[in-house]
Design a protein around this nucleic acid. Structure first.
Lengths: 167, 167
DNA sequence: CCTGCTTATATAGAGGCATGATATAAAACT
DNA sequence: AGTTTTATATCATGCCTCTATATAAGCAGG
């Protein structure tokens, strides 16, 4: 714990505190969840499909740990996705225990479809803003992207080695 | 549909497109769900509690429509929250049909606890960044906040009057 | 007052999604 | 060969959501 927990009133020119950034990111997250979420498949399902799309066929247990769910949860999820023809299962010739899960073309199409839907909804939302606001938002996104990218990577690492404060 | 759907290659100095903003928000949503989510209660449960905290006792049906779930879903959710002593139900003296749902002190405490947890986790994450990255993120958040605030309000209005493209 | 319409909430049944505990089977290691 | 470890599956349970339907209170007209 090396950050300082500030809670008093701030001067007008003071830099944004971590708490400010946290609050803003939180609000952003709520917006994202409420307006960019498709109801068709679950978050874990979408995330797993995306992973299979990026990284190719994977073992069940690897998927489970990467997605942060238990192995039985992943088994069930894969069974459902299989029923929907979004993934297929192939036995590993080198190891009779493992099952390799691979995304199907239908799975890829679903991912693309979801992405289109999200982008369109967001575009509609952005279209309600004034051009100045939209520009400000776009500039901020541009400016923040590299740092945010590293934040996401750091977060991914944090998941692997759980030095977290228990929650 | 008055926005233009751009999809070609972009010049290096081109302004951020809506697709870029969408991608950024998407990544943020993933980060949020993976790292800012407490497993104790669901998203809808937390959001409903927050609403009850902000807006005071409300009818079941009003909560359902505001949260975008069906009335039976809200009935069940409230039943669960009631079992956990996070909300209470009071009969409306003016209308024998309605049940007013109110947050309890325990509910408020849970909200505060969750917020503390999220902020702390995010602060830890931010602390892993270089000072430059953290500054960049803070500056971007500051710059984007007013526009983003209006975006959130616009989004809230959009939920009320569903002129959406079906998804 | 009684019939019928609307509104507010509840119940029933089904499926997705997660869990912990446990079973099975293949691989690996004495 | 026997034991342990690894990979996956199954079971029972609970949350969360849905659609369809039931109950019950308010409301309107005869």
């Amino acid at each position: 714990m090396e950050y300082t927990q500030q809670s008093g009133a701030r001067e007008p020119d003071a830099p944004a505190t971590r708490e400010e950034v946290a609050a803003a990111l939180e609000q952003l997250a709520f917006l994202a969840v409420r307006h960019l979420t498709n109801r068709d498949i679950s978050f874990t399902a979408a995330s797993t499909l995306g992973r299979l799309s990026r990284e190719g066929p994977s073992r069940l247990t690897a998927l489970a740990t990467d997605e942060g769910v238990t192995q039985p949860s992943m088994t069930q999820l894969i069974q459902r996705l299989e029923r929907q023809d979004l993934v297929t299962r192939v036995d590993d010739p080198h190891d009779g225990r493992v099952v390799l899960v691979a995304i199907t073309d239908a799975g890829r199409e679903l991912l693309a479809e979801r992405r289109r839907g999200r982008t369109n909804r967001l575009a509609e939302l952005l279209a309600t803003l004034s051009p100045e606001d939209e520009q400000a938002l776009a500039d901020a996104v541009r400016a923040a992207t590299p740092a945010f990218q590293r934040l996401v990577e750091s977060a991914a690492r944090a998941r692997k080695s759980p030095g977290d404060t228990a929650s």
